[in-house]
């Protein structure tokens, strides 16, 4: 894909896809008006959509996305079962703590996805993002263990999956 035309194409197809999903019809006038509106929107906004540069298109883009989504939903359900157990137990076993972790994601979009994933998975909540460090609130931080190793395990799994489709 050419460097300068790709943001236009991406925004255009994203807008049109959103239009199609919202109208949920394939009537000609609907398609045409959606085409025109997404054309105008993409012409205006595409130069400012720097965040889309983070997408890493290659042959396995869709496979990477699907693998990430599957792992993400698995982690989300696990997180919520863990959380339900914690909320329903009589003495809530919590040991909250703020920890800093480093990420190797380079693009803003990658950091956004990583921060969202951390927020929605077991007992962690992203508080702040600075360059390549994330400040994370951890609801049940284990005592007397190597903090670096555990933070590494939090991030590295998601990063592996995320690298399938973003930088």
């Amino acid at each position: 894909m050419k460097k300068n035309s790709s943001p236009y194409l991406l925004t255009f197809f994203a807008c049109w896809l959103l239009w199609l999903l919202l109208t949920a019809s394939f009537a000609t006038d609907e398609l045409l008006s959606g085409f025109l509106i997404s054309l105008v929107i993409s012409l205006i906004t595409a130069p400012k959509m720097n965040i889309l540069n983070g997408l890493n298109f290659h042959w396995a883009f869709l496979i990477g996305l699907v693998r990430y989504l599957v792992y993400f939903f698995y982690a989300l359900i696990k997180a919520n079962l863990d959380l339900a157990k914690r909320v329903l137990s009589k003495d809530m076993k919590i040991n909250p703590r703020m920890v800093e972790i480093e990420t190797t994601m380079q693009s803003d979009l990658g950091k956004l996805f990583l921060a969202n994933s951390i927020t929605l998975t077991p007992g962690t909540l992203t508080v702040d993002v600075n360059e390549n460090r994330l400040l994370v609130h951890w609801i049940d931080c284990p005592e007397n263990t190597d903090l670096d190793a555990i933070t590494h395990t939090i991030v590295s799994k998601f990063e592996n999956y995320l690298k399938g489709f973003v930088r």
């Binding site: 919520n80 959380l83 909250p96 927020t119 929605l120």
Partner: peptide
């Protein structure tokens, strides 16, 4: 017990 833990629980469980 505090705001940060409440946000955690609120976001995750309500989202799922």
């Amino acid at each position: 017990p505090d705001v940060y833990n409440r946000i955690q629980v609120g976001t995750k469980a309500v989202t799922l």
